[in-house]
Design a protein around this nucleic acid. Structure first.
Lengths: 180, 180
DNA sequence: CGTACTGTTGAGATCCGTCAAGCACCGTGG
DNA sequence: CCACGGTGCTTGACGGATCTCAACAGTACG
């Protein structure tokens, strides 16, 4: 309903991986996915029982369709996530995530700057990007000094959207369920 | 039905990412996922029309349930894939993938060695692991000389399954849809 | 016999992680 | 009011992991 929620996997070493960040309207799946959901901000969540995947299919058609569509969107984000972590450098990777969040939260432009509130810590970003928190800090500094985007005090400000999109090769079409 | 199929995303730079490897019985999704399916071996595939996600839901219940379960399994593999790429070193990562394949293909042990045929090239492995083909080669050498597993001539031979599982912190439970 | 693809190995450069220290902020308790 | 501890952010130094470039061997195939 509102707030930010991270879906994580925790390794036996204590390391954490943020698989996905859920915003208002998104579906958070626990149970059969063996993921852990953590609130990154005060959040309101509606819980639907159904720990097994079969359980989901037994809901009335309209309900299960909403859940399955949410799952499909999530799948698409996860796939892009693999591309991001696997084949892009730290700077492009970070830029890509910030652009995805800006797009999903529908951040509007004002005076040439797109900005939105973001409750993530640098450690969270690192866990979502497969980077150390220290390196995230350096990457953010680089993006800031490059005039692309700044992330300080819980606020993301995109100064050069065009350049950032180019840098990260960001193509938001994966966020839609439509076919090509 | 048979054979090995890779689901890929291709970047504008020409770089390729292998998101998932499908074996007999698995569901390969193209269309709304914007993935490209490539046969890694001679393969027999049954094609179901339904480029959009909504299309899938309109099949008769038993059919759509099979597809959705296949998608759920795929989601679970993808999630573990993110953990693998994001938070494990190259050696552990490679070990994890080989163990996953051995598990999914149900490779049997004989004379203390688990072995199975694997049509992947080192370049394919690299694209699946977010590594360069050259580094994959070095990692395989390290695993081989460590007495864990060898992958040569299209055949994987696991000599020390126990040690490999430990090394990769491999827990196959994510390959099942059951809840914890 | 030549070409293409795959695998192998070495050398050097780059990216990124770890360790460490210090600063800023904030809520708590004295 | 101030001291204190916790958390998050910032920066530097160093080392290790991984990439890129390059060369070469082996094999399949026309």
């Amino acid at each position: 309903m509102s707030g930010w929620v991270a879906s994580c996997k925790v390794l036996n070493t204590g390391m954490r991986t943020v698989l996905d960040i859920s915003l208002a309207g998104d579906v958070v799946m626990t149970g059969w996915t063996r993921e852990v959901a953590t609130a990154l901000s005060p959040a309101v969540v509606v819980e639907l029982p159904g720990p097994t995947f079969e359980g989901l299919l037994s809901y009335p058609q309209p309900i299960s369709e909403i859940i399955l569509k949410g799952m499909a969107r999530r799948y698409a984000r996860l796939a892009e996530h693999v591309v991001n972590i696997g084949r892009r450098g730290a700077v492009e990777r970070t830029a890509h995530l910030l652009l995805e969040l800006a797009h999903r939260i529908n951040a509007r432009e004002k005076d040439g700057v797109v900005s939105f509130a973001c409750p993530l810590t640098q450690a969270d970003l690192g866990d979502a990007l497969g980077l150390s928190a220290v390196h995230v800090n350096r990457v953010l500094k680089e993006l800031r000094e490059g005039g692309f985007v700044s992330f300080r005090g819980g606020v993301v400000e995109i100064y050069d959207r065009r350049g950032l999109v180019e840098l990260a090769s960001f193509d938001p079409s994966y966020l839609e369920l439509r076919s090509v």
